[in-house]
Design a protein around this nucleic acid. Structure first.
Lengths: 200, 200
DNA sequence: ATTTCCACTCAACACAGTGTTGATTGGTAT
DNA sequence: ATACCAATCAACACTGTGTTGAGTGGAAAT
């Protein structure tokens, strides 16, 4: 039973991460030192370096685990009748799940998308959406066949807009339900299909 | 004629800013020290502090002057027949001018929106667009009267999407003309008006 | 011509933070 | 008992910070 060592290890890491998250609420990433983190976590500064390379590494891993969680959350639902579902339903469903996951981890998203982060996360999340959503959208041959706009611009447009909705949602303290948000996104985004002027 | 002092002053500032811009192309903001900047600018480190509080202040002022330039660029064109112009034409015109200004200052936008900036500029530019564009759009009573989506979400959506287009345009090395880009934006965004299903 | 002005230089300062080291502590497992 | 291992602690050289006070050199003012 060497698991107890792992448990100690995890407990310290969790303490560090939790403290770091709280610090990021109050001050900018650049103004937080490893000293602050260690002190606030009640941990020796040397112990921090036992677990992380530096504060960039800490932030990086937390962001990565949040995205990994989102990836898993979406993958859990992937195999099933959903793949065969109507385009609109499928996209909408994916969107709902994204909003749900964000609500589940509101604190983290709020901090990582907030003004105190040095904001690699915005870019990371956008890349995530570009990979995920537009791959699915564009893989469907009929989906955007009527669109007269280059696909990369369409991806950039749709995912940036989606991210914009998320950020506004957070700014509004998650006043709307995930279903409402997904519906809003779908109601907006699906009119892009009509770029040639034909009716929805 | 004490202007020569101002000229010296300006020349040093320009040298510092130019060097800083070049440094930001190569390394992340966090990894650039005042020492680097001063050395690369061929200027004493003390001289840097004669002009700027710190490197954050330097970045801040450069970003601000870029946005101020954009503000002026748009204001120059404001008074005229354009105000009375058709909604679509006016928005399109504004958009063209934004893309034009960005092309004029490609280097700065590329750096400040790039991965080496600590990325306050993305947020700043988005806020700029929210103030500018959606104020105009939403001030027009008929413009979005049919839209069933809350105005703040619509603003967030439209401006984030616009910024997404800009970033993709930069990623594509400004392959399209400003007019093409504005047209693309308009072609996409104007279908939002049809959210209730009526024809464009 | 000399004095004033002023951007800039230079060296030095105390200070905060970094990442690493080697020795040590105190529970846990064998 | 003893080997194990996360965590502690003090000390290290190092980089960068922001500020100081004295000094330089060329243009401006009188």
């Amino acid at each position: 039973m060497a698991e107890i060592y792992d448990q100690m290890n995890e407990k310290t890491k969790e303490k560090i991460q939790s403290v770091f998250l709280h610090l990021l609420k109050e001050r900018h990433f650049n103004k937080i030192s490893v000293q602050h983190i260690a002190q606030a976590a009640g941990v020796n500064r040397g112990t921090f370096y036992l677990h992380y390379l530096d504060k960039f590494d800490l932030l990086d891993r937390m962001e990565a685990s949040l995205l990994e969680g989102l990836e898993n959350h979406l993958h859990q639902l992937e195999p099933g009748p959903l793949l065969e579902e109507a385009e609109k339903g499928a996209v909408s469903f994916q969107a709902v799940e994204v909003f749900r996951y964000i609500r589940q981890h509101e604190e983290w998203f709020r901090v990582f998308l907030g003004k105190h982060n040095h904001s690699g996360f915005h870019r990371r999340l956008k890349d995530f959406f570009v990979r995920h959503f537009t791959d699915k959208m564009l893989a469907n041959p009929d989906f955007f066949k009527a669109v007269t706009v280059p696909k990369d611009y369409l991806s950039a447009f749709a995912t940036s807009a989606f991210l914009g909705l998320i950020e506004q949602w957070l700014a509004n303290d998650l006043a709307e339900s995930p279903a409402d948000m997904a519906d809003m996104y779908i109601r907006i985004i699906f009119f892009i299909r009509n770029l040639d002027g034909r009716q929805q």
